[in-house]
Design a protein around this nucleic acid. Sequence first.
DNA 1: ATTAGCACTCAACCACATTGAGTGCTAACG
DNA 2: CGTTAGCACTCAATGTGGTTGAGTGCTAAT
Lengths: 341, 341
Amino acid sequence: MLSERQRMILNAIVDDYIRSAEPVGSRSISKRSDVAFSPATIRNEMADLEELGLLEQPHTSAGRVPSIKGYRYYVDHLIQVGGIGEQDMRKIRGFFAEKMILWEEVIGHAATILSQLTNYTSIVLGPETFQATLKHFQLVPINESSAVAIIVTSTGHVEHRTVSIPEGIGMDDIQKIVNLLNHKLSGIPFIKVKSVLHSEIGKELSRIVDSCEQILDVLETTLAEKTEPKVYLSGTTNILTQPEFKDLGKVKDILDMLDETPKLLRLFHSVPEGIQVRIGTENAMEAINQCSLITATFSFEGQSLGSIGILGPTRMDYVKVLSLLDYLSKDMSSWYAKQHK
Amino acid sequence: MLSERQRMILNAIVDDYIRSAEPVGSRSISKRSDVAFSPATIRNEMADLEELGLLEQPHTSAGRVPSIKGYRYYVDHLIQVGGIGEQDMRKIRGFFAEKMILWEEVIGHAATILSQLTNYTSIVLGPETFQATLKHFQLVPINESSAVAIIVTSTGHVEHRTVSIPEGIGMDDIQKIVNLLNHKLSGIPFIKVKSVLHSEIGKELSRIVDSCEQILDVLETTLAEKTEPKVYLSGTTNILTQPEFKDLGKVKDILDMLDETPKLLRLFHSVPEGIQVRIGTENAMEAINQCSLITATFSFEGQSLGSIGILGPTRMDYVKVLSLLDYLSKDMSSWYAKQHK
DNA sequence: ATTAGCACTCAACCACATTGAGTGCTAACG
DNA sequence: CGTTAGCACTCAATGTGGTTGAGTGCTAAT
């Protein structure tokens, strides 16, 4: 357990370091109005805090830098998430004043807003589509042998892919198939589509056309394959403005990771409900071991609606980001609730 | 007019510089088997070439570096675009062996292949959709007041956006409208959609529903607004591997530009038919004044099919990129022709 | 016309001293 | 006994001066 004074000093050091990105010395802490002790006293405390693993020294004659454990303590016990600035508030107001119809639009634009307000990178995952239900299915023939399959989900998400049409299927056959599918599959969650396809649709399909095996195959890969949520990125290059990332190699690793959707999905796969902070090596992904990731998830009546992440240096402005995220996510949730009341 | 020897020397210098990224001295040129002159002679020629504005000196006691004019001469008169490597050829073969149905898939994947083979950034613009015709139109209601509009073009491109449904329009009205539009607009080029909407559809629409003004408005913005081609990017972070871009500021400018679709569109707006090279400041876009952009456009029977761009440092391997682009674009064109024969 | 020779230039590199922000320790102080 | 002033110490950062070497331009000889 830390003494009150130790907490004060740790708080001061982390605050200072977040602002300056430079090791913090005892003298500069002692000058702060809220810490009225001499540098010597503070040095003693700092030595103790270092022994506890909360601070680190780049080299003997430098100031102290928060360790990951230090940031963790700071985030868990020292900060308090408060209101947000006048400016930011106005910007968010403006954001919600825009006319948005789909949840995906809200969550997508939220990425942009957040990266602008924080100057960090924002990563947003759309709703997990396998929880949604099928709203509409359409096959649009492009030429004799291929067509574009279009899927619309209950969340308003539109997905499309190309499919080959097996030999000997005519235009009217396609229309019949589409009608059948829309009739049978509307309102069915994606997660159940595969089984319904086999149990109910197989038989009916064989009545319409001969080569029903092939078609079932195509439909299955088309309808069941799609489970990846959409990823929105904003402010990817903001990392380049952070002084700790002047090393091009690391920056490339991070940017490369952001380019790879599967990696991002894996990164978000394990985040729990609500707002969470992952600092440095807590992230388990090599490339962002020098970064912190703050995530917020959204859900409504047990259905996951997607998640937002802010990626910045470990030295990120936790108070600001957490406050913003707190504020914004409440607005977003109420937007959704209102839309679905 | 340059002498034969001057051409040889200029060629040698540019070649060397492209490989090494370091100023080229007279001695290293003289050592090349194809330039059998003493360093002194070469120095004299280099002085002349500098006076002509084809070479530059970073400082008095450094070697020479090609100027933009130098690269221009090199590209226009010295290189010859030849065959491509065994490896590359195999990769491209593998690429065309994949099953692709839509032109958009071909052109999109081409971006990936090119950035992998060249280690530069590739930018691909899909077909200009306003030249395409409307294949299919659909309105899928999401809730009482809004719907998702889906547009499929003759090129297989799928576009969607959300629309609000005016008060007092029922489900069956929507179905009627969709049927009418599909009937009247199928096969109409997008560029003409607006006028057809007014001349033919307005009247018919008023027979179906009352508040036809409002609906026309919505349809117009939905159908006519969309003219932007899709942009595919690949290998954006490859710039970070180039030694000349160790300056983070410049890199950020370039990456930021790549993130902004409108800027990219403007950049491509002025490129002519065929393959073209733009070196350094010839690009007119501040951020890429230190880059070269090689573009290739595709078309078939007068219809534009999109364009490919390779963005690299001015010191890029013009021979390789031009050869690759030449080879690949022929394959792509023949793919398209075969598909539409 | 070509080239060997030579004086000259200048970025890059290294060794060394200087500086100053920061530390830990000890002894004095209230 | 907790706090603090004082002091010796450390070390990255910065500056200085010398050396090196790759490169040049010019001149005179071939």
